[in-house]
Design a protein around this nucleic acid. Structure first.
Length: 648
RNA sequence: GCUGCUGUAGCUCAGUGGUAGAGCACUCCCUUGGUAAGGGAGAGGUCGACAGUUCAAUCCUGUCCAGCAGCACCA
């Protein structure tokens, strides 16, 4: 038999007969490795230990210590083990697919009755039994016809459909965990006992459409989370609890920022505290935009359907619009309007007033545009996904030649704002031409290149999302990473030659002829509502000083200090600081606790000592240490730390 | 929109086929206390809405509304 040479990660290589499996190689190295080995990477691809190696290769044998591979295998085997457990408990349940996802896996089942939380407990118990069986994992390559026939006989239509969708040249692999069998690409562990039995947990059940298609049957999806050790599972569960503490819906209530109620689903009732954040952020954005060369406009909320027909929204977006019918007296027919879901058509109307010259371009037209969209009920989520919201929207009217420069200017503008708001980690994605599109290939070539070049010129890399652009033009998406690693797509820049065409926008060029401008739709925050939700979750409610709704509370320790507390509050207010007094008949411990829970960044306590010395006892949120400062000192300090970043 | 779950006091949640309870918050009283909950008393609810079953429904059934998780959606 031919010999092959296998090179190990340490650079050493050994000769083996061709067709040897990674498991046999592990056994050749040591008995303990043979036992601990879970899989192997051969020439960069991840295989299980049963896979024969046919040529010279670089090989690395993995154990549970190799986090990346171990997580994948453990989660993948757990998906199979769970499916087996479910079928052992309820033999009539049909299996579908069960992939590995971030932090775990899921498996979709077709079953008449819903799974209950008690069922999850039973499944988990059964899974542990299966793990303890230490059933060897076996694999075979099957002929398509055999596999189809097998699944047809077993009444597993979903598997048959899956086989049909696997390309004909791809071998069909079958895997066994004991007697239980599943169609699977692999790789898998040596035996079920290699799964750490105390490092997984079934999380929840939810509906999911077969193949992600809302016109197809809804299946029941069970989610699980798994790691390579009990400690890592525990750390993950703790992290989930931490994330729950940041929930903006919970903090919004606790900090008295806003509420929502049945009569206005998906719309926000902003309370004084929340509205303070909103207006501070908006004032900041307005200052930035003015300095960034934008003109600000404001356009109507309720607009006749004629405009939406002309813009194309009536045809493409109608089910997402609030339609308003007005039955005017003596009118022959009802007037039909729609609440604007976007600002762009209205901005073109402003652009179209008066004849524009090439000298007017680029024209950066901004609006804090209040929009209403009839979002599907299931999509609503706190203030993050709402039906009424305000965008930090702008449209840049320009020539095609100006796209690159305008894009670069925008990226710099956005980077500056994200930095001011405390987000340093963010990425750019460039979405390119989709299959269904308008416009010439040459124009797509030029515009996509312009966006890419602008990113590079601004000093940023970007990831390409092939085919994800709008039908009329490519776009950039700006995604920021929050304090606990979650990603939020906020900023966007979209190239649009279509709407100016539909709404007949034009300008007089240097040549004296009429020309069509291009529109760049762009936003930095996205919507104020969603962005404030992100700010709350990112900061766990401890907002930057300049955005904190209540910046200082001056709390009296004894009632004889009340008058002095009011004097301190007045001195702070005179500097524009949001200060209030807490003169309630409560102990200082109580007041400190309450305002700490309420995320007030500064608590100034005053007793008779402070009254006599004209000082305050300063305590910053989260610090146990207090410090005594004179009134002048604290007023100056707060005036400085509450200054918005663009005014520093 | 789809599947499942949930809806009881301002908040967090118990509970029962015979019209309801706790803790915190709130109001009042006592207490003037030095940096994360001092003590006492009181007030507060058409039990999400509408139908049905029943002598009787907050509880059982149905429809609707809203929320939660996931899916789908986010021209």
């Amino acid at each position: 038999m031919a010999q092959i040479s296998l090179t190990f990660p340490d650079g050493n290589s050994r000769e083996y007969p061709a067709g040897i499996t990674a498991g046999e190689v592990a056994a050749d190295i040591s008995k303990s490795l043979a036992k601990k080995a879970i899989s192997a990477t051969v020439n960069g691809a991840h295989f299980d230990l049963q896979w024969p190696i046919t040529g010279d290769s670089a090989i690395a044998i993995h154990t549970l210590q190799d986090e990346v591979q171990a997580n994948e295998l453990v989660r993948h085997d757990l998906a199979h083990i769970m499916a087996r457990a479910v079928q052992e408990l309820w033999p009539d349940v049909k299996v579908t697919i069960g992939p590995v996802i971030k932090d775990g896996w899921y498996y979709d089942f077709d079953r008449q009755e819903p799974f209950t939380p008690e069922d999850l407990g039973a499944i988990e118990k059964k899974m542990k039994e299966i793990i303890n069986l230490r059933d060897p994992v076996k694999t075979e390559v099957w002929d398509r016809d055999v596999a189809v026939k097998y699944y047809e006989e077993r009444g597993e239509p979903y598997k048959v459909e899956l086989i049909d969708s696997i390309p004909g040249d791809e071998p069909l692999r079958m895997y066994w965990h004991g007697d239980w069998q599943d169609l699977c690409r692999g790789p898998h562990l040596q035996h079920t006992g290699q799964v750490p039995a105390d490092a997984f947990k079934l999380m929840n059940v939810a509906g999911a459409y077969w193949r992600g298609d809302s016109s197809r049957p809804m299946l029941q999806r069970i989610y699980g989370t798994a790691f390579t050790s009990k400690e890592k599972l525990k750390a993950h569960l703790t992290m989930l609890e931490e994330a729950a503490k940041r929930d903006h819906r919970k903090l919004g209530r606790e900090m008295n920022l806003f509420h929502m109620q049945e009569e206005a689903p998906g719309q926000v009732f902003w309370h004084p505290n929340g509205w303070t954040i909103y207006t501070e952020l908006q004032d900041y954005m307005r200052r930035k935009q003015r300095r960034g060369g934008y003109v600000e406009v404001n356009t109507p909320q309720v607009v006749n359907r004629k405009l939406w027909e002309a813009s194309g929204h009536w045809g493409n977006y109608q089910e997402n619009m609030f339609i308003v019918e007005v039955d005017e007296d003596h009118a022959r027919e009802k007037t039909i309007n729609a609440l604007k879901p976007m600002n762009c058509p209205c901005h073109v109307q402003v652009f179209n007033q008066g004849l524009k010259s090439y000298r007017d371009l680029p024209l950066r037209m901004a609006e804090f545009g209040s929009c209403n969209r009839y979002e599907p009920s299931g999509a609503l989520h706190g203030i993050m996904r709402v039906r009424g919201f305000t965008q930090d929207d702008a449209h840049i009217f320009c020539t095609e030649d100006q796209i690159e420069a305008e894009t670069k200017i925008f990226i710099d503008f956005l980077a500056d704002i994200y930095a001011d708001l405390g987000f340093t980690g963010w990425t750019i994605k460039l979405s390119t031409r989709p299959e269904k599109r308008i416009g010439s290939e040459e124009s797509w070539d030029r515009v996509e290149a312009a966006l890419g070049n602008a990113c590079k010129a601004a000093g940023y890399d970007y990831e390409i999302q092939e085919g994800e652009g709008a039908f009329y033009g490519p776009k950039l998406e700006f995604t920021l990473t929050d304090a606990i690693g979650r990603e939020w797509q906020c900023g966007t820049l979209q190239v649009d030659p279509n709407l100016p065409e539909r709404l007949d926008a034009n300008y007089i060029g240097q040549d004296g002829d009429k020309h069509r401008p291009i529109m760049l739709h762009r936003a930095v925050l996205g919507s104020f509502e969603r962005f404030i939700g992100i700010l709350i979750e990112n900061s766990e409610g401890k907002l930057p000083l300049w955005l904190a709704p209540r910046q200082v509370v001056v709390a009296s320790i004894v009632s004889d200090a009340d008058a002095y507390c009011l004097e301190v509050v007045e001195a702070l207010k005179a500097k524009g600081i949001r200060a209030e007094a807490d003169l309630r008949n409560e102990k200082i411990n109580y007041k400190v606790r309450e305002h700490s829970v309420g995320k007030v960044p500064y608590i100034l306590a005053c007793g008779m000592k402070e009254v006599e010395e004209r000082t305050v006892s300063t305590r910053r949120l989260g610090e146990k240490q207090t410090k005594t400062q004179t009134m002048d000192e604290i007023v100056a300090e707060l005036a400085s730390v509450t200054t918005p970043p663009d005014k520093r």
